[in-house]
Write a protein that binds this DNA or RNA. Structure first.
Lengths: 146, 146
DNA sequence: CTGCCTGCAAACGATTTGCACCAGC
DNA sequence: GCTGGTGCAAATCGTTTGCAGGCAG
């Protein structure tokens, strides 16, 4: 799955989102977003920080955390959770789903086109904007090991 | 939503699971499970601990954490995650789905029978045992407030 | 009787916060 | 120029761990 994400698009989205919401567009946020968008795994905030430091050695860890949080608020990234460990981030905006290993607790992306157009529940008291399906199970590595 | 869950069923499940896996069946585990099963929200480990202390003032927080973890291992509870805060537990074993508020980050249960029999992906390298759908959106309280 | 479980307190790691300075608008 | 973002270091919060005694099998 080595397709190249169009980073320029992400940068544009960021620009628009910042302008719309009156949020200053800083270099740090731009780099954090690009770094995140370039990855297909689900990096932790710390992972992102370390990757960002390659290009910007002076960013503080705190800023990485804050920038990620801001990006989530702007709708340009998603924060996903992972029992037993730290939060993970994902810049994928296209719909996709997750395989969560019940043993090693790792999270894998999975594309299941058939699940991409589920009907959203019409709950009046909750406005649904998006969804994803979390499959639980055992990954290959853990299956082998047991 | 004040219906009474059949706690005896949960206790039986616990007994069977403990025997099967050779895990000692302690009072603490029983009480933790009953406490968790009696709730419809998604309590934190700490929430569970406080609720358990009403009946067993001497349980330590550590034990609550460990018992919850054990129950997850036994398949009698599920640990769910909640960005920005602590892990949450759920004793519901029947399939259900979640509404996650993007604003207050609270998690609500939702029953959507139509989503209960999705086809599991036939990925050879990942053995899927269960799934749930996470809907993201804005809950009533947050919608009103903004 | 033996081993796992429990309780306690301290350790740990991820994330947040307060404050002074600097950059975007 | 004003507002809000950044960097630093310390604080905070949830969770885990090591060890001594107790209970389930």
């Amino acid at each position: 799955m080595g397709r190249r994400p169009r980073e320029s698009t992400k940068a544009e989205e960021l620009e628009v989102a910042c302008r719309t919401l009156g949020v200053p567009l800083t270099i740090q946020r731009r780099v954090v977003l690009e770094t995140l968008a370039a990855r297909d795994d689900h990096p932790t905030a710390d992972d992102v920080w370390e990757a960002v430091r390659v290009r910007m050695p002076d960013v503080s860890r705190t800023t990485a955390y804050r920038a990620l949080d801001t990006l989530v608020g702007l709708g340009l990234a998603v924060k996903i959770c992972h029992p037993g460990s730290s939060a993970r981030y994902d810049a994928k905006t296209r719909r996709h789903h997750h395989l969560v290993c019940a043993h090693c607790e790792r999270v894998f992306d999975i594309d299941v086109p058939a699940l991409d157009k589920l009907a959203l529940p019409n709950d009046k008291s909750f406005e649904v904007t998006d969804y994803s399906v979390h499959f639980r199970g055992v990954c290959a590595a853990c299956k082998e090991e047991s």
